[in-house]
Structures are given as C-alpha cells and as structure tokens.
C-alpha cells in the first residue's frame, strides 16, 4: 500500500547524498559529531532527539530514537518524560501566546 510515510524509507536516509553528495556528506558528518559524547552524554542527547522527534512529528525519527534511547539504556519512564517535555513546551507555547490575545483584547475593549 502506498503511504506518504514508509517505515522502510528510514533505512534509505543515507541515500539522500544521491542527489547532492557534498551537502549530504557534510550533513552526516555534522550529524555524527552532534551525537557524540560531549558536555552532554550520548544518552541525554538521544532523549533530547526523541523529544524533538515528537515536536516535529517525524515518524522516522520517533522509530529511530525509540530504538536509540533503549540501546543507550534509557527507561520507558525516562522516554515518556522526554515526550511530556515536548507536550509541555508545545502546550506552553500555545498558552504563552494567549498573553498577546489578552493584551489585544484588553486594548480594544472598554
């Protein structure tokens, strides 16, 4: 069945270099560097990636970073807390805009 998102396409991610090799190679080199142990551990970075995957609603990224966080020893509770951080920021970003709504409403109301 044709779908916009095919799980098998995740394995073809590396193939994006076919149409633009130089930029693709640079991206993957950068990507690899970003996820190395640094000031943050590889596990912390993986949990951030999992949270961001939910924010950008990328099914490929959710599959990839669910596996990756488990491999890096994260618990299901930690993974779900990461997604709650996404939800809190997404929800908060809507609600904080309500200040603008309130400002405007107060300005134009008697």
């Amino acid at each position: 069945m044709d779908t916009y998102y095919n799980p098998a396409d995740l394995k073809k991610f590396g193939g994006i270099t076919e149409f633009q090799k130089e930029l693709g190679d640079k991206f993957f080199e950068y990507y690899g560097e970003v996820f190395k142990e640094g000031a943050l551990t590889a596990r912390e970075k993986s949990l951030i990636a999992l949270a961001v995957a939910h924010a950008v609603q990328c099914p490929y990224c959710i599959d990839a970073y669910t596996t990756d966080t488990l491999e890096k020893g994260a618990t299901e509770a930690q993974m779900m807390e990461a997604v709650h951080v996404t939800a809190a920021i997404r929800g908060g970003s809507s609600l904080v805009h309500s200040v603008q709504m309130m400002n405007k409403a107060k300005k134009i109301s008697m």
Partner: peptide
C-alpha cells in the same frame, strides 16, 4: 535492539 556503549552503561 543492540546494547549501547559498554563504558557509558557501566557508569550508569
């Protein structure tokens, strides 16, 4: 799934 880095997991 595969095991993660041995040194990191040992620390945890």
């Amino acid at each position: 799934f595969l095991p993660g880095a041995q040194a990191s997991l040992e620390t945890e």
